[in-house]
């Protein structure tokens, strides 16, 4: 059995670790609430934007024909995978689950002999993917200076994406992130940003033919960059909420484990102390008997 002093030191160290994880859990809980709130605030805009784009896209295919932003991407050769992860670690499987999903997609595309490019958002994903796929990297977006994600950041990213799209660097863009299902459940998901798929019209608009001003093509060229910025914005917001949720769960676990460890070490500590006392007593008694 380890000696008393060592045990005492270990118990103290686990206790201070528990304090840290407990604090991190509470900070994550507070941040999670904030992230959820701002995600909810942005939702009406994103939903409406999606509806307008759907209405537009379906009208355009009826009348005008092809817009470069529209399509189903089925015959594309060049793929851009955008992997959105967090800037910080200690959040359970949050980052590795996204990276895992992205990796499986990379493998799938490689099998089909597609050209793959990778753009990462957030340091952690970059670190994990850099090891294997360095040659595919075309960029990295650093969010470490952004305390809260703003629409400006998203616009910045989308402008960059569209510029690359227009320069023919890729034909299909997919973004990987963690969808926020609930506080304890985050689902790694992917979403195709470009080209915009031509869906059915919204229900309430199915029999309506719109007047466009200026014409459809021009509106599309105006609105699609906006809708991409909005999509990126909501993806980043969901990701931020998921990160905090994941961190909260991970830290809750860590706190509980630390508690269990402290209990176990305390029992060990008490046993050793008792053993030492008993030993001393036996020595005294046998010493007395020997006289």
């Amino acid at each position: 059995m380890a000696n008393l002093k060592d045990l005492k030191i270990r118990i103290d160290s686990v206790k201070s670790t528990r304090k840290i994880t407990k604090a991190m859990q509470m900070v994550a809980a507070a941040k999670l609430r904030k992230a959820q709130e701002s995600a909810e605030k942005g939702r009406p805009y994103a939903e409406k934007m999606r509806a307008v784009v759907a209405n537009l896209a379906s009208s355009v295919t009826n009348i005008a024909g092809d817009n470069k932003f529209l399509g189903d991407g089925s015959n594309s050769k060049k793929f851009l995978l955008i992997v959105a992860t967090s800037e910080r670690g200690l959040c359970g499987g949050f980052n590795s689950s996204i990276v895992k999903l992205a990796k499986s997609r990379i493998a799938e595309l490689k099998n089909q002999n597609k050209e793959i490019k990778i753009l990462t958002i957030g340091k952690k994903g970059k670190e994990q993917l850099n090891r294997e796929f360095q040659s595919m990297f075309i960029g990295h977006i650093d969010l470490s200076n952004e305390k809260n994600i703003t629409i400006e950041t998203a616009r910045h990213i989308s402008t960059d994406l569209i510029l690359r799209f227009e320069n023919d660097e890729y034909e299909v863009a997919e973004i990987f992130y963690n969808r926020f299902a609930s506080v304890i459940s985050q689902i790694p998901s992917s979403y195709r940003l470009l080209p915009v798929s031509v869906n059915e019209k919204e229900e309430d608009a199915s029999n309506v033919s719109f007047n466009f001003e200026p014409d459809e093509d021009e509106i599309l060229n105006e609105i699609i960059p906006k809708s991409i910025a909005t999509s990126i914005f909501s993806v980043l917001q969901e990701n931020a909420a998921s990160e905090q949720g994941s961190r909260m769960a991970a830290m809750d676990n860590a706190t509980r484990n630390a508690g269990e460890m402290i209990d176990k070490l305390t029992i060990d500590f008490n046993r050793s102390r008792q053993a030492a006392i008993t030993n001393e007593l036996i020595e005294i008694i046998s010493g007395a008997e020997a006289l």
């Binding site: 307008v52 209405n55 537009l56 608009a205 309506v208 033919s209 719109f210 007047n211 466009f212 001003e213 200026p214 021009e218 509106i219 105006e222 609105i223």
Partner: peptide
Amino acid sequence: LVLPNHAPCISS
């Protein structure tokens, strides 16, 4: 100007 019963339209 948009008034009630305006024809459906999308404009930037």
